[in-house]
Amino acid sequence: MRQLTMMKATLEALSGEMARNPAIFVLGEGIGKRGGNFNTTSGLFDFHGPQRLRDTPISERGFVGLACGAAMTGTRPVVDFMFADFVLDAAGEIINQIAKIQYMSSGRIKMPIVLRGCIGIGHAAATHHSGSYYSLYAQFPGLRVVVPSMPGDAKGLLTTALRCDDPVLFLEHREVLGLKGPVPEGDHLVEFGKASVMRQGSDVTVVALALMVHKALAACDILERDGISVELIDPRTIAPLDHDTILRSVAKTGRLLIVDEAFAPCGIGAEIAALVADVGFDELDAPIRRLNGAHTPTPYSPPLETAVVPSTEIITQAIRDLCDE
């Protein structure tokens, strides 16, 4: 299969769906002629023009409210936030209106919005451009939260998002945008709520998201040489979360480590740990462990920035420690 970067893979999904469905349009800063800060709309302006690629001023709450109203009228807005940190500026519109309107209208009004933006720590982007907020949005009913790690998955998940009638937060880790991977040609859909088992293993289950999937894969390789067999699961979407795949894996291995770059308190790792402690308690042969990024605003200083993110070495050691429990 051909290898594409995640950037190219999602552009292919957006381009294909825009061609297929004229109701789709994109809103955001610099997504018109410029083609998006991260090339998310590169070349689309030439095809679809300013009607469907609408540059906005720096006013997140304004254009998200606009998108909400547009979606109520039957269009399919894609809001491109560049950095997901600034989705927060529109939190009221998203949480109070976008997430609730289908319920409030007894399902008569659909809310087919895709809210996309980059997450994650890297490149000394400092604390206003490094956040990972997926756990926050996963807490609210009515929102779907997608966190892809692989280009092929990203294409399939964005296509599903663009055909979905629910609001979707599509959060792309900036440090994996340039990573290449196999991407199917043509129509490619990945269902929400279906985890991907990246590695089959028997000794320990590791659940990881986004960039941490790649670091955990490297850890798997190191540990395999020492005879430790890791089962690596990428949930791909955290709302809905694939309970079955995680529970099945823990039933096999008896051990669970959740690796998450985002903050530990009240995060997705805590959610998964609670799930397994509840439903999978009798399967556990060791305590559930979490490995998270440091609970601190992200430092600008490159060495400090490196220090707050779980590294392959730390993940490897955490898995070893868990196997010794």
Binding site: A264, I288, R289, R290, H295, S311, I314
Partner: peptide, 14 residues
């Protein structure tokens, strides 16, 4: 505690 996470403030030294 079994559910204690590895100290997130010192990821380099669990």
């Amino acid at each position: 505690s079994p559910s204690t996470s590895i100290d997130p403030t010192h990821p380099e030294a669990p």
